[in-house]
Amino acid sequence: MRRLSFSGYIAQLLMQLFLLFFAIACIYPFILAFMASISSEKSILDNGYQLIPSEFSMLAYQAVFKSKYLYTSFGVSILVTVVGTLLSLIICGMAGYAMSIKRVKYRNAVSMFFYIPMVFGAGLLPWYLVITQILHLQNTIWALILPGLVSPFNVFLMRNYFATVPSELIESAEMDGAGVMRTFFGIIIPLSKPIIATITLFIGLAYWNDWASALWFIDNPNLYPLQYMLYRIQAIINLVRQTGAMGDMKVPPETFQIATMFITIGPIILLYPFIQRYFVKGIMIGAVKG
């Protein structure tokens, strides 16, 4: 191995120090916010946010988990995220694979069909009428899944990545008698782990953070996803606080907001380390190649 010169060691050391400080700068806000979430309301009002609070309190988390619908909302969000992500991956993947095969007729026309909604939108009212009056999905779990099932951006990312798979592999599989579905699930999918992981993160985040669909289409509290449930709790607390009718309600508004943030991002933080090694490769190849 080639030995580094003194200037090379200095440059490497400076780069490592820069990355260390950059990592600290990224992590510091999360640590500060978490410490604020377990601080007492009086501590924050008197001293602001501190890495070591003058007074600890779990009242904010107790207020969040006190809601009887919270655990149901957790289940709804998990169900919607898992089912929606799987279905969206299958549909977007099949559409992207079909458009990546050069011998498929009218693939450019199909690509334009997906491209137009990325540029032009019909508006909120027609979309709402289609979901409620034509598909009759209001107050059903599918109202939280179907509206975000197909994303043209994800379709194009997958199409561009699938186009990098050597066509000889597909031709060889077809010569051995493999059909389109066998080729797609047996060859293309195993070779496309980076883009699958990347799109999984995109779709999963979109479903997990979606609260607007519940606002428009759901009236049944048993179908509220986690994000919308916490939104409603926060809105009630803010309304009571503004009207000055807190009374005996022991809910700290400042720390409550931060506690809800950590509850909502917790599952995503646990998921990301498992797919982050594929993320950069998948997004770069999927965006550039094709």
Rank of each mutant, 00 (worst) to 15 (best):
M99V: 08
M99F: 08
M99L: 12
M99T: 09
S100H: 07
I101A: 02
K102G: 00
R103N: 08
R103W: 04
V104C: 02
V104H: 04
V104I: 15
K105D: 00
K105L: 06
K105Y: 05
Y106G: 03
R107M: 04
R107T: 01
R107N: 03
R107Y: 06
N108S: 13
A109D: 02
S111D: 02
S111F: 07
S111N: 08
S111A: 12
M112D: 01
M112Y: 12
M112F: 13
F113K: 05
F113S: 01
F114R: 10
P117F: 10
P117E: 11
M118L: 05
V119I: 15
G121N: 02
G121V: 02
A122L: 05
A122D: 01
A122K: 06
G123L: 11
L124E: 07
L125I: 15
P126S: 01
P126A: 03
W127A: 12
W127P: 00
Y128P: 03
Y128V: 09
Y128D: 04
Y128C: 02
T132Y: 02
T132N: 06
Q133K: 15
Q133E: 14
I134C: 00
I134F: 09
I134T: 12
L135W: 04
L135F: 12
H136A: 05
H136W: 07
H136E: 11
H136V: 09
Q138S: 14
N139D: 15
N139M: 04
N139S: 11
T140L: 09
I141F: 04
I141K: 09
I141W: 03
W142G: 03
W142Y: 11
L144V: 10
P147I: 13
G148D: 14
G148M: 14
G148L: 12
V150S: 01
S151I: 07
P152M: 08
P152H: 06
P152F: 08
N154V: 10
N154C: 15
F156H: 04
F156V: 09
F156R: 01
L157E: 09
L157W: 11
L157K: 06
L157C: 02
M158T: 11
R159K: 15
N160L: 07
F162W: 12
A163C: 03
T164C: 00
T164L: 07
T164N: 04
V165S: 01
P166Y: 07
P166R: 13
P166K: 09
S167E: 15
I170Y: 05
S172C: 11
S172L: 13
S172V: 13
A173S: 15
E174I: 00
E174W: 09
M175W: 06
D176L: 05
A178I: 01
G179P: 03
G179S: 05
G179R: 11
V180C: 00
V180N: 03
V180L: 13
M181L: 15
M181F: 15
M181C: 02
R182Q: 14
R182Y: 04
F184A: 09
F185N: 06
F185P: 07
G186T: 09
G186D: 08
I187A: 01
I187L: 14
I188Q: 04
I188C: 12
P190N: 12
P190Q: 10
L191T: 05
S192R: 08
S192M: 08
S192V: 11
K193H: 00
P194V: 11
P194D: 05
P194K: 06
P194E: 10
I195G: 00
I195R: 00
I195V: 14
